[in-house]
Design a protein around this nucleic acid. Sequence first.
DNA 1: TTTACTATACCAACCAGACGGTATATTATT
DNA 2: AATAATATACCGTCTGGTTGGTATAGTAAA
Lengths: 180, 180
Amino acid sequence: MNKRAKVTKAQIIEAALSVAAEKGAGKVTLDEVAKVSGFSKGGLLYHFPSKEALISAMVQQLVDDTEADRQQLLAQGDNALTSMIKAHARLTEQVQGNTAMAILAAAAEQPGLLSPVQQACQVLVQDINTESGDNPEAVLLMLACDALWFQDLLSISPFTSQQKEQLQHYILRRAEELMP
Amino acid sequence: MNKRAKVTKAQIIEAALSVAAEKGAGKVTLDEVAKVSGFSKGGLLYHFPSKEALISAMVQQLVDDTEADRQQLLAQGDNALTSMIKAHARLTEQVQGNTAMAILAAAAEQPGLLSPVQQACQVLVQDINTESGDNPEAVLLMLACDALWFQDLLSISPFTSQQKEQLQHYILRRAEELMP
DNA sequence: TTTACTATACCAACCAGACGGTATATTATT
DNA sequence: AATAATATACCGTCTGGTTGGTATAGTAAA
């Protein structure tokens, strides 16, 4: 797969994510993605052999991006818990914060497409448990962080952005206390 | 609205929830719901003037049921935080645990349909903050509880059911310590 | 108590448009 | 020229929604 195809694929995925964000996770149709991306429907199906393949790629990109962020933070010396928290915060702050919409699009299309996400979650929990010596407090902080993310994803967050930031700082501080 | 209509509406909603759970949140079509519920498509549209109205009713039922549970626990003397945690646990344990699928179905159809959920969340946070004197620890416990629920909803939970139970107990214990 | 009327609850058939996907043609790139 | 990339034109199916109608139940007048 050369560079041009990669760029095109990325554009298509980005368009699909924005459709999901604006019209609803279940409204990701090939016609609409074609219109938004500027490519024709035939063009989409050249790069992704089916709609399912497209959504699967969206999910994979989300998983890969998040994992890359986390690995980078780990390499900088952060522990598993704080790196996870920071990686999540980055996802939320993203200017084009639609990346996570892949999850809802997959849940709408076929829940089975989410298994890469589950696997990534399992690895994460394992890492955190190993590092914290199975301290449930660590998992609790991870879950709280997750919830803020889920709430944003569904646009049901009861917090203002400032409150969310404060909460994230609070969680991060607690994590640092926990794993010095 | 008399009893018969109420029963029929409930049956339709139940069928819609099971379709969402089995086929995916975006696959809730009138045809499929008609087939599963045993009513005709015309019958559905007699009770719910549009698909959107049906999904909206699903969301409202979820909000109402949860709020009823919570109020009952509050009346028994529980505080806002522990009653919320217990109400969430009940939702998860429900034999026909599809109720929460309303959220994903709404996210698939039109994200705006989720605003009742957001309002309910706001009330919840307000109650918890008032009772705890704005102690962020209380919100943190609420979020952790939420996350377990979201993970189940999307079938991406990295925990076994036993681990989930343990975590819920841990959260509940912490909540009781926090608000004696 | 029968009869006429009305409202509720539901259904089968249909429609116009949207859907995912295919087949084929056309244009760029190498 | 050969291959990769994109566009156009369709096709069969499914979609949300409409229509006209039926059966049942209640209600009121005779």
